[in-house]
């Protein structure tokens, strides 16, 4: 399958068979997703999935689809651009009020699990 997952979630990286673009930060996930969309990739899952607010949950996994035809024709999906740009704005907003702290490892694992299950819920329906 021509799906790729852009993620900064280590649990996703080691748990799924799809090709993974692994990022070190949430910002990087957002910007890389945006760049892929501009290259003609199709956005499959919503970048603001999950009710735990971005930044508070440090992990995010987003599925894109590599559609050779679109990529060749450089077809741009404006709706996807709109979605990722608003998501980036929301991340910026939540960053503003967030004071960085070290989460205990168990909490990090919980966040990873939640992000992973949100991703799986998306993968299950494609």
């Amino acid at each position: 399958m021509d799906y790729i997952v852009v993620t900064n979630n280590p649990l996703v990286q080691k748990s799924i068979d799809l090709s993974v673009e692994y990022c070190s930060t949430l910002d990087e996930v957002m910007f890389m997703t945006r760049d892929f969309i501009h290259l003609g990739y199709e956005l499959i899952t919503h970048p603001l999935s999950g009710s735990v607010k971005p930044v508070q949950c440090p992990y995010k996994s987003i599925v894109l689809k590599k559609d050779q035809n679109n990529i060749k024709r450089k077809m741009l999906d404006y709706q996807a651009v709109k979605i990722i740009e608003s998501a980036i704005k929301k991340v910026e907003q939540f960053k503003k009020n967030h004071i960085f702290r070290e989460y205990p490892k168990s909490v990090l694992i919980d966040y990873q699990t939640i992000d992973f299950t949100l991703l799986k819920s998306g993968l299950d329906s494609i």
Binding site: L43, I44, T45, H46, S49, Q79, L118, G122, S125, I126
Partner: peptide, 8 residues
């Protein structure tokens, strides 16, 4: 309110 745009 699923996570994939296709489902939406």
């Amino acid at each position: 309110e699923n996570v994939t745009l296709a489902d939406k």
